[in-house]
Design a protein around this nucleic acid. Structure first.
Length: 664
DNA sequence: GACCCCCCTG
DNA sequence: CAGGGGGGTC
């Protein structure tokens, strides 16, 4: 990527970062990539980006045609309305005018308006006298509005004057509409010229494959304008190659009667052979092999450069994560990081802990602390996303070993990367609107989030695609963090964690529920271990314990219910079926729904086994009539209590865990 | 007395 | 899911 465009790299300050998104939303994306400031210095592009001469031409044309007579009256008060309020500025001051021009919906409307204003100014001067008269008249009218009404009553005849005023009013309205329309078309012309020029550069280089890919030819542009029903544009704004012919045709189609001077005017222009449509563009400058071609190539390369930069960032991100992977677990983790929408929520105070957690996460199966179910981090869907219809991007996801996944692992869980944008927007939108979040969490996450984007448009996607080095370092020791929860409170997963908060958030509730898959009877110390982002006090501890008590209650109620249902089953075969807790059973579905509502976490097999044990215990007690004893459940509780598994280390980190898979 | 669990209730 | 009561354990 060496090209004249390197100067853009070397002089980033000249780039207006927000310019990319400051252009018209529907404009050619490639044209976004250039800042007007960088381009304005070029003899070719400057007139295109600041096509004052176009509007001058238009203005003078209009003047000659005697069009828009009402504009004379209206210029001084309506100009800003049409083009947006904008101070007149020198071109150099427009280099990074994105922030200054908030009110202007179209990026270049200001320039166009400005140029238009310049054109109109002389006319305004010339019309000043009549304007003054009109103003005086208006003042009179304003002053004597009551008297006019009186006069009406008195039998004066203001009818002609009123009619003319109303006529002018209508004219103004029409003119405003026309101006708006024309403005849009001018902008479109600008974009088309861009594309045309790019296509021409390709032609000159002999490659016309890109011509098919969207670069339109000049005839298209001409057609666009000749098809236009705007007499101004159809008669005055055609590119040179075809303007003569097309406009003659156009004029012959009827516009000639309306604008008899059009063809003459154009002929004059074109015969001059120096000026292109009054754009102050000397033909030689862009049609000569040296100037035009070079510049065209520079433009093209610049386009390619900027596009490639963006693509590079994305690819690099994934290349890095991919290259650093050794084991499947690491792959998973790294990819989780790449997909981790939650990275920002992790507070720096946790960095040490997170770094320490890495070896635990990637430890070998022999080091498993949990003999029953060992969880390792996996790339995981962001549970806050609505159901995705799109398939995942396979290239962006690590290969999955079937051995490492349970059959019911949702195949379409991973988040396609482009959706991160939406996700983050959703998260922040939701988090800002509805969550009882700790202020610190919110602000910290938000600040981190914004800090990513200092050089980019304030779009979450770019910030997420290009985490700062510190962010990457922070993520280095983290598990993948797309937290879970399809319900409304899940946004807290991203914002609640990362700093200690006194209260428990929906995130914590979800985490607690997932923890229940491993520990039905967690001690308070265990809870403190696995909720590091919670400031524990008596109340919080009690609440957490109460949560688990409620979880147990629900669990046992379901067990008893299904055990009794199985006890009612007559045949042994049906009973055995009822006492099995496959992942396709109703009981499993209910449990999963309760503890893993968004179904974004793989229910540990051990939990299924324990549930089945509990179910059979209940069934056995019911069958044997022990349920008549008021304390008959206690024995079962005791059994289940002993079956707690170690909670995966991923739960030690703030926020919600993602997913697990069992080793072997 | 503190803590925890279960149960009931809303 | 939370509040509250009753009971057990330390």
């Amino acid at each position: 990527m060496d090209s004249p465009s390197d100067r853009f790299h070397q002089q980033p300050s000249q780039m207006c970062p927000f310019e990319l998104y400051h252009s018209l939303p529907d404009s050619n994306p490639s044209s976004h990539r250039f800042s007007p400031g960088s381009l304005s210095s070029h003899p070719l592009f400057s007139p295109l980006m600041h096509p004052n001469s176009a509007s001058q031409r238009w203005g003078s044309f209009r003047q000659r045609q005697g069009l828009f007579p009402g504009l004379l009256v209206d210029d001084d008060i309506r100009e800003e309305d049409v083009f947006g309020k904008r101070e007149f500025a020198t071109p150099s001051s427009q280099r990074c005018h994105g922030e200054q021009r908030g009110q202007s919906s179209a990026p270049d409307s200001g320039e166009w308006g400005q140029d238009f204003a310049r054109v109109k100014r002389p006319r305004m001067d010339s019309a000043a006298r009549s304007e003054e008269e009109t103003g005086r008249e208006g003042k009179r009218g304003r002053k004597s509005r009551a008297s006019v009404r009186m006069g009406e009553r008195k039998g004066e005849k203001p009818g002609n004057r009123r009619e003319s005023r109303e006529g002018r009013k209508r004219q103004r309205q029409e003119l405003k509409l026309q101006l708006e329309e024309t403005k849009g078309k001018l902008l479109e012309l600008q974009r088309k010229v861009w594309r045309v020029y790019g296509g021409q550069a390709d032609d000159e280089k002999g490659g016309d494959e890109e011509q098919e890919n969207g670069a339109i030819n000049l005839d298209e542009v001409a057609e666009m304008f000749s098809d236009s029903d705007d007499p101004l544009i159809s008669s005055g704004f055609s590119p040179p190659r075809c303007s003569s012919k097309k406009n003659n045709e156009t004029n012959g189609n009827g516009n000639a009667e309306i604008f008899p001077e059009t063809s003459v005017d154009l002929d004059l222009e074109l015969n001059g052979d120096q000026v292109w449509l009054g754009c102050s563009l000397v033909r030689g400058e862009w049609e000569s092999a040296e100037g035009g071609q070079k510049f065209a190539q520079a433009l093209k390369q610049e386009l390619a450069n900027v596009v490639a930069q963006v693509i590079d960032r994305v690819v690099r991100l994934y290349a890095e994560t991919d290259a650093s992977t050794v084991t499947s677990a690491t792959v998973s983790q790294e990819t989780s990081m790449a997909l981790d929408l939650n990275s920002d929520r992790r507070a720096r105070p946790h960095a040490v802990e997170q770094v320490e957690a890495l070896p635990l996460v990637t430890k070998s199966p022999q080091d498993k602390r949990a003999p029953i179910a060992q969880s390792v981090l996996l790339p995981h869907a962001n549970p806050s996303l609505p159901p995705l219809s799109q398939p995942p991007l396979p290239a962006l996801l690590p290969p999955r070993s079937k051995d490492h996944f349970l059959p019911s692992y949702p195949p379409d869980n991973p988040v396609p990367l482009p959706l991160l944008h939406y996700t983050m927007q959703n998260l922040f939108a939701r988090s800002l609107s509805s969550l009882p979040l700790h202020k610190d969490c919110l602000s910290e996450s938000f600040m981190d989030f914004r800090s990513h984007n200092s050089a980019f448009p304030p779009l979450p996607l770019l910030g997420q695609l290009e985490p700062s080095p510190s962010d990457r370092a922070r993520e280095g020791g983290m598990r993948g963090g797309g937290a879970g929860g399809g319900d409304g409170g899940d946004a807290a997963l991203y914002l609640a964690a990362g700093s200690s908060q006194e209260g428990l958030s929906p995130c914590h509730l979800k985490k607690a529920k997932l923890m229940f898959f491993y520990a039905r009877y967690p001690s308070s110390s265990t809870l403190k271990t696995y909720f590091p982002d919670v400031k524990f006090n008596r109340c919080v501890t009690s609440q957490l314990i109460k949560w688990f008590s409620n979880f147990r209650e629900f669990f046992y109620i379901q067990m008893e219910r299904f055990a009794r249902q199985a006890a009612r089953e007559g045949p042994t075969s049906a009973r055995d079926r009822s006492l099995r807790l496959g992942r396709d059973t109703e009981l499993y579905r209910i449990l999963n729904m309760h503890y893993n509502k968004s179904n974004d976490y793989q229910v540990p097999e051990r939990f299924v086994e324990i549930s089945e044990i509990a179910l059979r215990e209940f069934f056995s007690a019911i069958q044997s009539g022990r349920d008549t004893d008021p304390c008959w459940k206690k024995a079962i509780y005791k059994i289940i209590c002993k079956l707690d598994s170690p909670v995966p280390d991923s739960f030690r980190l703030p926020g919600c865990p993602t997913d697990t898979y069992r080793m072997g």
